[in-house]
């Protein structure tokens, strides 16, 4: 399960509206306790896939190293990521699964239709390695 404050939830949805018709992306930081990921903050990231930003995203690892370091200073760990699907359902795609490598983390997807955020869903990357990984629906508790 993903627990997320309303303000952070609103900010990641707003991020998807702001970058529409391109995909937005960012990192969720907080604490992990077994199957519960509690978000304390979100760090928006730039999408390096400028060649295909309407249907692909990639977070620059250099950004990630910085976000991870800043999180450590606040005693927050990376617990998940978010991105948007412009004019496409809030469901993971084969590309999302193929390129997901952070096991035990949440992958949050917001559908943005005609510039307006609609549905936000979260999926946990389960499994032990690249051969048995799955993105599994998980509950989002906002508030």
């Amino acid at each position: 399960m993903l627990k997320i404050p309303q303000s952070v939830y609103d900010s990641l949805r707003h991020h998807g509206e702001k970058t529409y018709p391109h995909e937005c992306c960012g990192v969720l930081l907080g604490q992990m306790d077994g199957d519960i990921r509690t978000v304390a903050s979100a760090a928006p990231a730039g999408n390096t896939r400028t060649d295909s930003a309407h249907n692909r995203y990639n977070i620059d690892p250099k950004d990630l190293v910085r976000i991870q370091r800043e999180g450590r200073e606040r005693e927050e760990d990376i617990v998940g990521f978010y991105h948007s699907h412009p004019d496409h359902p809030a469901q993971w795609s084969p590309t999302d699964l193929a390129e997901a490598h952070w096991f035990g983390c949440s992958y949050v997807i917001t559908s943005v239709e005609k510039g307006k955020a609609v549905l936000t869903n979260s999926f946990e990357l389960t499994g032990t390695d690249e051969n048995d990984k799955k993105l599994v629906d998980e509950k989002i508790e906002v508030g």
């Binding site: 990630l64 190293v65 699907h85 795609s93 590309t95 699964l97």
Partner: peptide, 17 residues
Amino acid sequence: DSISIVPSIAGGRFDFR
């Protein structure tokens, strides 16, 4: 020095199939 191991973060609605 500080060494970071960072698995990549990427995806998107594009369907490679």
